[in-house]
């Protein structure tokens, strides 16, 4: 069974329909890349999955649990949303690291705050905190940042910041990790180092949704590619087929423009 099932998601801002009947599913351990021009609704889709926007209709199901049902929006209490959010992680285009904390503290913070809710927190505080720290150190090492743990975000390059942000999202062990154009704020060299760690995550069977403009990367890393245009999913399927031999005319136009630019 699919870990994520998105059915008939719709979203409008005032008079603009941004998402029109979006449906797709994702298997555990698989990667889906979402491509499409700016304004096609890719980012809004990710934001809906992460409860940063509330869809106007449709359902979102993770691991059999219905997280969102447009027919019953009353169930969206803040506390519930916070819990449901933890199924997803989100890596932003602009990193959004917390500037007043070191790389290590950035990764640890949310988990520490969550740990405070545990009934045994007071009793085992020291042990819990040292476990969280060790996990954070492991994650940062995995990101190739073992000598950057005590640096503040302003002391890091864009690529390093983004890798810290990935570690921060992974620290909460989300079922599905989402990337919103993770390399769009980076120069080509830094882009490479971030794509490399995402590829490593894919090799470890991390379930991921990646919105990106890096076509070759989208094709190589994903098990499935979705092309979005004007709020619709125009085409979805095998990465090599969608990117190298698109069936739809609109996909061809989009990819042709991309080939010219690169």
């Amino acid at each position: 069974m699919a870990i994520l099932e998105v059915k008939h998601i719709c979203k409008r801002f005032d008079d603009t329909e941004v998402l029109k009947d979006i449906s797709f599913s994702l298997e555990k351990g698989q990667v889906v890349s979402i491509i499409g021009s700016s304004g096609s609704g890719k980012t809004t889709l990710l934001r809906c999955l992460n409860f940063l926007e509330q869809p106007d209709g449709g359902t979102i199901t993770v691991g059999g649990e219905v997280l969102f049902d447009g027919a019953d929006p009353s169930a969206q209490k803040e506390k519930e949303i916070r819990r449901k959010r933890l199924h997803f992680g989100l890596v932003f285009q602009s990193f959004n690291l917390f500037p007043q904390y070191t790389a290590l503290r950035n990764v640890m913070l949310a988990k520490e705050l969550l740990a405070k809710q545990r009934p045994d927190y007071k009793k085992n505080k020291k042990q819990i905190l040292s476990e969280i720290e060790e996990e954070a150190r492991n994650l940062l090492t995995q990101m190739g940042l073992e000598d950057r743990m005590d640096n503040y975000p302003y002391q890091l390059s864009g690529g390093q910041c983004q890798r810290v942000a990935i570690a921060r999202a992974l620290a909460l062990s989300p079922d599905i990790l989402c990337f919103d154009e993770p390399t769009s704020a980076l120069d080509p060299e830094l882009t490479g180092e971030v794509l490399k760690v995402i590829k490593e995550l894919a090799a470890k069977k991390t379930t991921m949704i990646i919105v990106t403009h890096e076509m070759a990367f989208a094709r190589d890393v994903a098990n499935q590619v979705i092309f979005m245009d004007d709020g619709y999913i125009v085409e979805q399927g095998d990465p090599v087929q969608v990117i190298n031999n698109p069936r739809e005319e609109r996909t061809r136009q989009f990819l042709a423009r991309f080939d010219q630019e690169n």
């Binding site: 940063l52 932003f92 949310a110």
Partner: peptide, 26 residues
């Protein structure tokens, strides 16, 4: 920036945690 609030939100923080732990010092 909105991104600071959103980063806190997607990490499951409450509004008061975001205020005190993320934005206040900034």
């Amino acid at each position: 920036s909105r991104g600071q609030y959103e980063a806190g939100e997607v990490l499951g923080m409450t509004r008061s945690q975001i205020f005190f732990k993320v934005t206040l010092l900034q």
